[in-house]
Nucleic acid binder design. Structure first.
Lengths: 155, 155
DNA sequence: AGCACGTTTCAGTAATTCTTGAAATACCTG
DNA sequence: CAGGTATTTCAAGAATTACTGAAACGTGCT
């Protein structure tokens, strides 16, 4: 991998890692972002990053599961290719509302736990309302982006 | 801390930790969510969670810096009180767009690095566009929530 | 100013998470 | 179906991160 690409991969991956993604997964994802559109094989990723095949396997499994990358195998080929496109990335953002929903379930329990404390109850309910709002609006926001984008690109 | 509150704190904190927040900070924040409105002292937090004062100090520093909690000291008091309210939480969400902006700077470098690859360039630009869209729209979304909320509560 | 109490810093330890080599498994080709 | 290659699993070591006790530092009261 050329130096410029490598610099991007490390920098972008660091950002992702700080945002909570596993480090290796971050690097693999970043590498795929600057890769040719037909993607990279596990071996190519391992070589580019200088890590083991095992690490790549773990990372690709995680990234595939969360929908950030896609695994494809051309029939009659012996290797998987991993790739990411803008759409996948966006869909993954959508999936995130599942986390918000889980949090809201916990907040409901918090309301019960703090039932004796009006101030706490109000605060928790406010937070619940905000999360509910996000769960509702975020998919809408993404949908709107898709719409605008398709209008521009004509796709 | 009563068992119900404790259960909430552990469960909610786990969610936050999985979303990328430091574990201790997550627990402290969760504890403050179900605390009385005037907040808790560092000692109270430490006792409630069964952790050291040092850990609480580190966590409160982090949470204060990121805007998720507020430190107050009543004049003539000798102790700080830490508290969180719905508004702070929302403002912290706004701040997050800083991370998106940083990512977009990296993506710009990625475009340069992959200039020889039309497919990669398109993919990176698409991601950039999406981030730019979010940077633009997220604050708007939060603003809209504030507006709706104030209309309902009359505050 | 001195005291008492609360908070922060720091360096060592503990715990967790990451990474890997090696073995096991799956899969395509001939 | 045998051979070869790619991928996954797993256990162990490495690296990172989290947590704490102790000491230093601040701050308000008397």
């Amino acid at each position: 991998m050329d130096p410029q690409r490598a610099a991007f991969v490390e920098g972008f991956a660091l950002q992702l890692a700080q945002a909570g993604m596993q480090r290796m997964a971050s690097r693999v994802f970043a590498a795929l972002l600057v890769a040719p559109s037909d993607g990279l094989t596990a071996r190519e990723i391992a070589d580019a990053l200088g890590v083991s095949a095992a690490s790549v396997s773990t990372a690709t499994t995680y990234l595939t599961r969360t929908g950030l990358i896609e695994r494809t195998r051309v029939p009659g080929e012996r290797v998987d290719r991993y790739a990411t496109d803008g759409t996948r990335w966006v869909e993954a953002t959508l999936v995130e509302t599942q986390n918000l929903a889980t949090m809201n379930e916990w907040l409901a329990r918090g309301v019960d736990a703090a039932a004796d404390d009006p101030g706490a109850v109000e605060r928790l309910r406010e937070t619940q309302d905000f999360f509910a709002y996000l769960i509702d609006e975020l998919p809408r926001l993404v949908e709107r982006w898709r719409h605008e984008r398709s209008a521009v690109s004509g796709r």
